[in-house]
């Protein structure tokens, strides 16, 4: 059954709220407004204000409250409107949620799910266009997911809630209107990367909002006779490098597409691991297509120029192949 990414997120939460009374949703505008991205439309009426809680504009406060609820035995879904505002909750996520299992010698776990929108592309200017997935993927103690498809948007929440440790889910704001098919049973794993397209000439590795662009680039390359393999990381921490190595051993070439800035990016991490583990398989220096190292511009043409686009991905592959 075809649905939008937005609807998939909504169905996943609905299913969780129905299935487990310990699950509740908390965040700015999730109740009366139905969610900034309309992912919880109608939930307040259906589940009531105790389980669908509008919070004050204090990420530090309500993420902390979510951690407390998780420690107390509930299964909170905390929606942070966007990654841009999650910086206010960094202390709670990095210092508290990620460390408590370790600090308590395994006595406490924090079964918290934090969802947030991420990414640029909607003319929201420099303060509302960040792609900081790699900041969270840097932190041991949390799991970081980036559903890039309707199936993952629909399927990742349940295993995330079942995980005893904190899970951060990044929903790229450009994806909410994407249409697709969820898995038949609605479920999926949160451990592996996914192969979206097979090809023998080059491995394109990406995640989140860059997946549709990368698939578009692969289609264009196919028309030029270049068979690109497309891998969606899906899980940004821990990285499923086995899938990537397997692909690169076949293609011997890798381009990583990452909306983050190149310096210190997830793309940098993937390349470093390729160099460490896959050096003798490489037939060309691995390459990255990332965002320009500028605050994301407001003007549409500048914003488009700053972000990875299919044309830049195609160009990077051509350059790598000497074509």
């Amino acid at each position: 059954m075809k649905m939008t990414y937005r609807e998939a997120v909504r169905q996943a939460m609905h299913e969780a709220l129905v299935a487990d009374p310990r699950v509740f949703l908390m965040g700015e505008d999730v109740g009366k407004y139905g969610g900034s991205y309309a992912c919880s439309l109608g939930f307040l009426e259906e589940f009531g204000p105790e389980r669908i809680r509008d919070t004050p504009l204090s990420e530090l406060g309500f993420v902390g409250a979510g951690i407390g609820a998780a420690l107390g035995g509930l299964r909170p879904i905390v929606e942070v409107m966007t990654v841009n505002f999650s910086l206010l909750a960094l202390d709670q996520i990095v210092n508290t949620a990620a460390t408590l299992r370790h600090m308590s010698g395994g006595q406490f776990s924090v079964p918290l799910v934090v969802r947030m929108a991420t990414g640029a592309g909607r003319q929201l200017a420099a303060q509302h266009s960040h792609s900081l997935e790699n900041w969270y993927a840097h932190i041991p103690g949390i799991k970081v997911l980036a559903p890039a498809t309707v199936a993952d948007a629909r399927g990742m929440l349940a295993p995330a809630l079942a995980d005893p440790d904190p899970v951060i889910i990044f929903e790229h704001a450009q994806l909410y209107n994407l249409e697709g098919e969820p898995a038949e049973d609605g479920h999926c794993d949160i451990a592996t990367a996914a192969l979206h397209r097979e090809g023998a000439d080059v491995s394109l590795v990406t995640y989140g909002g860059s997946l549709p662009k990368t698939l578009a680039a692969a289609g264009q390359l196919a028309a030029e006779g270049i068979a690109a393999e497309v891998i969606d990381l899906r899980v940004l921490r821990p990285l499923d490098m086995a899938t990537i190595f397997h692909s690169v051993r076949k293609t011997h070439k890798a381009v990583v597409v990452d909306e983050g800035w190149k310096s210190g990016s997830l793309a940098a991490e993937v390349l470093a691991r390729l160099a460490e583990e896959c050096f003798y398989e490489l037939d060309a220096p691995p390459a990255r297509v990332c965002s320009a190292e500028v605050p994301i511009p407001y003007a549409r043409h500048l914003e488009e120029a700053a972000l990875p686009q299919p044309a830049r991905i195609v160009a990077a592959v051509r350059r790598m192949l000497g074509k």
Binding site: H252, F279, Y280, E281, L282, D283, A284
Partner: peptide
């Protein structure tokens, strides 16, 4: 923004996979 390694300098370019 996309530095090209200076050509013609240093070791001959042979990919690790090609060498292997």
């Amino acid at each position: 923004s996309t530095p090209e390694p200076a050509a013609g300098v240093g070791r001959r370019r042979i990919s690790p996979a090609a060498r292997k």
